[in-house]
Design a protein around this nucleic acid. Structure first.
Lengths: 217, 217
DNA sequence: AAATTTTTATAGCGATCACTATTAAATACA
DNA sequence: TGTATTTAATAGTGATCGCTATAAAAATTT
């Protein structure tokens, strides 16, 4: 099956690959800290090519962040489709985040949690993008805890908003501490300490010594 | 008692006040997001005056951050000098941080926790300043928990490093969530949920309904 | 082959970046 | 009253910022 080519001159670069290059740069250096010159140089394209493909620096940032989330934010899909118990799901997610945030193969921490926390006043659009996408992630976490409460996996008096904020804070704190050089094991020990705050009884206590394949989950 | 004036032309601006202006700008907009033009305009001085007084943008940033910490980081002084029980000290500090991070009188969150998490590669010195000062704060938190353990306020098997990381993560998560628009009450509820992870028995359970004067502590 | 469509690179736009050479102004000291 | 000392503003420096006008190149369609 040969896909019919579009009409004009064909692309000489991989758009998705260029997007991942942009993601890594924005992730490590932030919105203000990444220049168009940085992007074009690492992508191997010239400025007009970048603008033809992505519109503007702000649009490229948003698309890069959305692509990062699509590739890495799998928590809710799992709770919905697998029906996994909420405790093991969240505990495993936290331990796996401790590994991912310290993986030297990419910048430290979670790109979403670090996205445009501070930036120049004239780049408020990028700031709002970060705020908006973090709020969406928070709402999904709240929803997954709500569903677990309906399934009676959490005590009926549980404050799911407060609990969701606490797990968000753990992911955010792990991101900053990964930037500051914390090791995988140090972050995992913190997760273990924090999971003591789980309300009610914890079914199937998950150990941080359980290691998973990178391709799993 | 009249302080003898120095020899040359006297200053026409308040250096400490200018430093606080710089602190607010760096706090809200970050290192990359704050320009010399922003600083000079808000300080009411010209660029040569700023450089004569503070050396460089990097030195001004470091000085502003150190001044912020000196003004706001009072945790350890309290545990050392007052001999306050560690649980009430940390619980109160967390609840008060929830108030401070959402105070509309200044930028949201903690300037230290948000300091230069990401910035341009050529500004690595500012990034290192942030990392270094957060690591110092973490070591002080570890030390205060260690002393509490020696005073037998914590179980002997307590992992104080993991516990210190958890409280750092709460402060860091509260900072990011304050940036994202969380309310004082939402952050306090999160603190309450997280304090359930406190090891052993908690003496004198602190309520988030206890309100303190702004001038206290 | 000619026309149409799309992507490409060259070259450079005006604005802003962090920073400074120069000189005038304002004080204390001799 | 000079001289030394320090701070002040004027007026810029070269470099980089995000972005684009223009036109050549490479494909399909007619």
């Amino acid at each position: 099956m040969e896909a019919s080519r579009p009409r004009g001159r064909p692309r000489t670069f991989d758009r998705q690959q260029a997007l991942q290059v942009a993601t890594e740069l924005f992730w490590r250096y932030g919105y203000d800290g990444t220049s168009i010159a940085d992007l074009t140089q690492m992508m191997g394209v010239t400025p007009p090519t970048l603008y033809a493909a992505f519109g503007s620096k702000e649009q490229l940032y948003r698309e890069a962040l959305l692509d990062y989330i699509r590739s890495n934010g799998v928590l809710v899909e799992r709770v919905v489709h697998n029906g996994e118990p909420i405790y093991s799901l969240i505990a495993n997610y936290l331990y796996r985040s401790a590994e991912a945030y310290t993986d030297p193969a990419h910048p430290p921490g979670c790109m979403l949690q670090l996205a445009a926390l501070t930036c120049a006043a004239e780049n408020e659009a990028a700031h709002k993008t970060g705020v908006e996408l973090r709020q969406e992630a928070f709402q999904l976490l709240v929803a997954s805890l709500e569903w677990a409460k309906e399934r009676e996996e959490l005590p009926s008096e549980t404050n799911v908003f407060a609990l969701a904020r606490m797990f968000m804070a753990l992911l955010q704190g792990m991101s900053i501490q990964a930037v500051d050089g914390a090791s995988t094991e140090e972050l995992k020990e913190m997760v273990t300490a924090a999971l003591a705050a789980w309300p009610g009884k914890r079914p199937n206590e998950t150990q941080n010594t359980i290691h998973h394949r990178d391709t799993e989950f």
